[in-house]
Design a protein around this nucleic acid. Sequence first.
DNA 1: TTAGGGTTAG
Length: 694
Amino acid sequence: MLSTVTVFPAKPITAITTIENPKTLILQQCKTSKDLNQIHAHLIKTRLIHNRAVTENLLESTAILLPNTMDYALSIFDNIGEPDSSAYNVMIRGLTYKQSPHEAIILFKKMLETSVEPDEFTFPCVLKACSRLRALSEGEQVHAHILKCGFGSVEFVENTLIHMYANCGRVEVARRVFDGMSERGVVAWNSMFSGYMRSGCWEEVVKLFHRMRELGVGFDEVTMISVLTSCGRLADLELGEWINGYIEANGIKKSLALMTSLVDMYAKCGEVDTARRLFDQMDQRDVVAWSAMISGFCQANRCREALDLFNEMQKYNVDPNEVTMVSVLNACAVLGALETGKWVHFYIKKRKLKLTVTLGTALIDFYAKCGFVDSSIEIFSKMASKNVFTWTALIQGLASNGQGKRALEFFYLMQEKNFEPNDVTFIGALAACSHAGLVDEGRSLFVSMSKDFDIEPRIEHYGCMVDILGRAGLIEEAYQFIKNMPIQPNAVVWRTLLASCKAHKNVKIGEESFRRITILEPAHSGDYILLSNIYASVGRCEDALKVRRQMREERIKKTPGCSLIELDGVVHEFFSEDDGHAHLKEIYGGVEDMMKQIKSAGYVPNPADARLDAEEDDKEASVSHHSEKLAIAYGLIRTPPGTTIRISKNLRVCTDCHNATKIISKVYNREIVVRDRNRFHHFKEGLCSCKDYW
DNA sequence: TTAGGGTTAG
């Protein structure tokens, strides 16, 4: 402190003994560079600066202990006549952590050039610099020096080598170093775990942990955190619970990080309620803990609870960060919670959160899933760094918003920019072809993915191809394509063909597709309806009704239909026959009345549904649910001008909502967004901007 | 020197 410094010159020369002891050094008490200046001046005046121990302590204080004094440290260093390895170590360490790992490596080179022998403390510092820069070739050269200097068996050095190789993406080399160690402490094991985790080799973590246990090596909290994280990724509940049991049995204190890994493990293993119980038990919860729980709900497809928890987090005054927002945006995208998502975007800008690759990608995905693909493109163009996920999210977003050609433009552009498409990118590109009706392009992409990109087509890719051919009306070709598939077609593939048969009125192949579906899995209600609609579309109304009757006789369970409507930033879920939102109906009038109004506005259900309407007792297969949704939408449309009505539907084929939205638009002449599974349709004046429509 | 939460499809 300054008071100490002011009395310092008055002290007799015996003060040197204090100064020479690095641990009790006054220098360490410096808080600002001004304090440092005064001491430095005094050292020069008293010639103590020529004492090596004193100078090195001054250097350590400047380079490591104080912030923003690296340039000062460099000037001191440059004035040391012949710096020894300790002086170099201090500077390399300081540069690595505070200023520039790059300069740290340059300094290490200078050290070798001036023939200063590195010691065992030099290498961990310089390796850390290589790690931070992911400078593999420099790291390898340092490794060579380590061997040359005979420090290859120093555990401390070996641990850092493992870390360096793993961080540079060479986890297999890290493993070789690990295997070659004569003695492995728990840190070596933990470094290896962390290396595998960084490369996403979760199985290897678990395997290595079992090996650790076989060898009877003791493990610590860091080990458990790594293993729990891996259990979550692998959905290995058994091992996760074993660790939890171990913690309980040994009375280990659960730190914040350990608790968070437990919450994360349970949530990722599907035990979200257990995770929530643990989360509620935590006596302190930081942003990581909250984020883990929020993402847990998202991954369990409980997005409403994710958003509720996000609101609760704000009540606890915990500030969300980039990672939190990724999960929140994910939930908003699934729920179609446009207002909430927009608020998140606003918050990111206001709080100047870093637009990381992941966060940017989540934003792109969110806007695209809500049908605002222009906002997706805007974010995409603003992102400083992108990866294959970013490009894929945009391509998929464009494809599912009816902009197939534009999606393909980005698909080719990404390759020009040297981003290699992956298997998911191809799903997006093939979907783009299917929506844009680009059959030949789809065919050649399908061939190219295995030939040029070495990606083995999976069932999803085959499904996309069937969709491309089927939508284009090439039903027979699509059928032959399925029959010639080298892998077993699943119900989804046949269902895709069935839907094409409905669109193109192909009874024969439609019947065959339906038969195949029933062999593979019990047919869904939607399959019966598709088949029934195929019959109805060619005028075979008796057969259409027969299918509906069969459906009822076989008691085919219909998944409860669900609509999501966002009103004033709150997402309301409506289930078929559910009366939970009676208050909304009260506000906007009775459902029955609305039905009448909709019908009087000219709603004409398609022929098969019209017949079903007549069958009063057939509630399961009736159109009433869908009409109810429309009625609610009809009510909500009386919100102020400019309000976008957002209906999300999961069950019906688009023809229904197409008819329906026509009516609403006709009456109110407003833009309406209708969501069909993961695709949004914008309707203006009754016309959908998305050309991809059954 | 080691440790907790995140993105594309289906």
